[in-house]
Structures are given as C-alpha cells and as structure tokens.
C-alpha cells in the first residue's frame, strides 16, 4: 500500500516518556495547521495522535511516530505511523472492539482513533510489536 503514496515531506518523533506524547501531538497539530486542515480536523488528528502515541508509551514503553505529508490520487494528506516493538496485540479484533481495555484506559482508544482518522491500519504480532498507520486527507 506504500507504493501509491508519494511522500512530500517527513519527520519522526521518538516516544520515550509520557511528556513525549504531548510533544508528539503538538508537532502533529502544527503539521496539520501548516497543511490548512480546519480546526475540527486539527483537533481530530491531535486527539487520535494523543491516543495512539499514549498507547506506545503505556504498552510498549517506547517507540516512534513518523509524520508524513503524502499525496495519492491528486489528494494531499497527513499520514502518521505509530511504531513500537512492544508486546504486540494478541487479539486485534478484541482490541478494536468498543469498551475493551487491558489497562486503565476507557477502552476507546483504538476504535476511537479509527473513527477520528480517514485511514487506519493496524498490524501487530505478539512479542514483536505493533504498527498503526493512519491518514487524514485534506478535503478536495
């Protein structure tokens, strides 16, 4: 799926401790602002990043977030990829279901983040880590 995306610009942020989650979502908000996403979309993106970056910190301890401005089929979008090498998710279907939590959260992080973004792909292997690829497109 990577092949049809053209990356215009990219950066990455390491998630090592809780405050990096804030740094990361702040950075993503700035990218969204720069791309002229409207305020509601900016808030959606920032909130989704907050959920997913926090998942990295909470479950894997550390990982990284890649931020890309991409182009595909004449549309521009902000693609954000969350990568960790933590314990991975054993049951993706369960993790994606509403109200399920393995930790102290509300159990809405993953399905909530999915609803906030336009694209959402979760790959995970138990013991190897998790990669969540998300994208938000600018309106045509």
């Amino acid at each position: 799926m990577n092949s049809d995306y053209r990356i215009e610009e990219q950066d990455k942020i390491e998630i090592l401790e809780e405050k990096d989650v804030v740094v990361c979502r702040q950075a993503c908000r700035n990218w969204a602002k720069r791309m002229n996403f409207n305020l509601i979309d900016q808030t959606r993106i920032t909130t989704a990043v907050s959920e997913l970056a926090r998942n990295i910190q909470e479950y894997a301890g550390q990982g990284e977030v890649q931020i890309q401005i991409v182009e595909k089929d004449m549309r521009r979008g902000l693609r954000i990829i969350f990568i960790d090498h933590g314990p991975g998710i054993k049951n993706i279907k369960l993790a994606m279901s509403e109200g399920w939590t393995s930790h102290r959260g509300m159990g809405m992080g993953l399905p909530g983040a999915k609803r906030l973004m336009d694209e959402f792909a979760l790959e995970s292997e138990a013991g190897k880590g998790t990669t969540v690829t998300t994208c938000k497109w600018l309106p045509l």
Partner: peptide, 13 residues
C-alpha cells in the same frame, strides 16, 4: 469548545 465536543463524540466518550 465545538471541536472538542465533536471529537469527544467521535471518540465515543
């Protein structure tokens, strides 16, 4: 604020 309200609904909170 309106953005946060919308986002909260999407999040399912």
């Amino acid at each position: 604020n309106p953005e946060v309200a919308q986002t909260l609904v999407h999040l399912g909170v």
